[in-house]
């Protein structure tokens, strides 16, 4: 509870100081390098499915293995795509956590905390 109060008392310049610090900028840049391409990739990959199914149904009906067609395989691949992106994100987020922890530790030091 005391910590929350301490943070509430923290004047605005402390938040500004952190936001403008090199460590925080590094954290944001590291996040951006992963999240932006990952987001764009999954959006494009996902919307390719309704677009192809909607506008090229004959092409998507092409049979690949036995009676299994391209439409079903592409839909199924979406599940593995989602799991893979999620797994990669969790791995990348380990780095975000480390960078964030450094920032928090430094801030507490400044306040004369533990």
């Amino acid at each position: 509870m005391t910590e929350t109060k301490q943070l509430a008392d923290m004047n605005v310049t402390e938040w500004d100081r952190i936001a403008n610090s090199q460590e925080f900028k590094d954290l944001m840049a590291t996040k951006k390098v992963f999240i932006v391409p990952a987001f764009v990739f999954f959006i494009v990959y996902y919307f390719a499915l309704p677009v192809l199914v909607g506008y090229a149904p004959q092409f998507m009906a092409t049979k690949v293995i036995g009676n299994v067609n391209l439409a079903y395989l592409f839909a199924l691949s979406q599940f593995f795509m989602a799991w893979t992106v999620a797994w990669l994100y969790v791995k990348a987020a380990g780095d975000f956590d480390k960078l964030a922890k450094d920032i928090i530790d430094k801030s507490e030091l400044r306040r004369g905390g533990k």
Partner: peptide
Amino acid sequence: YDGFMFSVGWLVAYLTVLLV
């Protein structure tokens, strides 16, 4: 097949939850 499209969207949506 068209019904399966709901199934796909309902999972992939969680990437928005996770990333954003």
